[in-house]
């Protein structure tokens, strides 16, 4: 008889693994990615391939040669970071800037903090903000949906503003919201608008979110509190002065709010652990997003809002404990 193995209970393990979670996220991103490719064509594919390949490569090289660990790239987390980074930039972004973004995401945000699970900030978001500050022109040049499909390295003549960009510049020129020509709700829903190529299709993002909820990869708390807060906050502003503030539905559907609320803010590593912690986190994201959009210098505030809230996560985790069974107060 073989010697028996002895270890503590439990003796069985559930099916969930890091791999299954990461590939679940990839599957959930697929509808929005396909929508992005439909509207922005080859550029979106190239940005995606460069981003994923460089994220995976940087992770592998850093683990192998700098940290001298056994590389863990096949857990899929670098693929998720690469995909998210790609979907959060314009499809026209030059490939070498994408590579720099990957280096920031993996090398600085993830690996320098100690690897998977240890980073305080969302790697793809830091990389995106880094790119926005370093390459403000290319990061705010938005190819037109459908018309830019076949363009590869030259996007002259097929670019235009994002809905939020239009809103901001026209308001600054003294127009009222009603006078500004904004895309229809239908186009916002399907994604026939300018923007980072993965953020445009509201429907596709929501489908992905439902899939992650079904797979129990995320819970409803962050997306719902984030979106609801943004809705209520922008709704109040709109009621107060409809000439200066756009309606809440527009705020939810335009820009990066949905990809942010569903995919970026819910990043497991950089969001709180308990139900109430997550709700507070989502509320914070919603408030900061609208504050920056309405009163800040940038037309879009989702990335900054989530990063600000990322910084609060250790505090939130300490303050919001789960309700214990039979807790005696």
């Amino acid at each position: 008889m073989n010697p028996l193995i002895v270890s503590g209970s439990p003796h069985i393990h559930g099916e969930m693994t890091i791999k299954s979670i990461m590939w679940g996220v990839v599957i959930a991103l697929l509808p929005a990615w396909l929508a992005g490719v439909w509207f922005f064509g080859i550029g979106a594919v190239i940005v995606t391939l460069v981003s994923i390949a460089s994220c995976v490569l940087f992770e592998f090289l850093i683990q192998k040669f700098v940290l001298k660990q056994e590389p863990t790239v096949n857990d899929g987390s670098a693929v998720v970071t690469g995909l998210l980074l790609a979907m959060n930039v314009p499809s026209s972004l030059p490939w070498w800037q994408v590579v720099i973004g990957s280096l920031v995401a993996i090398g600085i945000v993830k690996m320098a903090f100690g690897g998977l699970g240890k980073n305080l900030f969302n790697p793809a978001l830091i990389a995106r903000v880094f790119l926005l500050i370093s390459f403000p022109v290319t990061m705010t040049t938005w190819p037109l949906p459908i018309e830019s499909r076949a363009n590869v390295f030259n996007f002259d003549g097929v670019t235009g503003p994002t809905p939020l960009g239009t809103l901001k510049t026209q308001l600054a020129m003294g127009q009222t919201v009603a006078q500004i020509k904004l895309p229809s709700y239908t186009n916002l829903l399907w994604g026939n608008i300018g923007g980072s190529f993965g953020e445009v299709s509201a429907i596709a993002l929501i489908i992905g979110g439902i899939y992650m909820l079904y797979r129990k990869i995320i819970t409803w708390h962050i997306p719902v509190s984030f979106i609801l807060t943004a809705f209520i906050f922008s709704g109040i502003l709109c009621l107060v002065n409809p000439n200066r503030y756009a309606d809440p539905v527009f705020h939810i559907l335009a820009g990066g709010l949905l990809i942010g609320a569903i995919f970026m803010a819910t990043d497991l590593v950089t969001s709180p652990m308990t139900a109430w912690g997550k709700i507070i986190f989502g509320i914070g994201c919603g408030v900061f997003t609208i504050l920056i959009r309405v009163f800040g210098a940038y037309p879009e505030g989702v990335s900054f809002a989530i990063l600000i809230m990322n910084a609060f996560v250790p505090l939130i985790d300490r303050a919001f404990k789960p309700k214990r069974f039979g807790e005696v107060k």
Binding site: I21, L116, G117, M273, T274, K321, R324
Partner: peptide
């Protein structure tokens, strides 16, 4: 593998612990 802070353990604990 490293903890990825997924909070699955928190949701699964019947005693409401972390």
């Amino acid at each position: 593998q490293p903890c990825i802070r997924c909070a699955q353990c928190v949701s699964a604990c019947p005693m409401g612990l972390e």
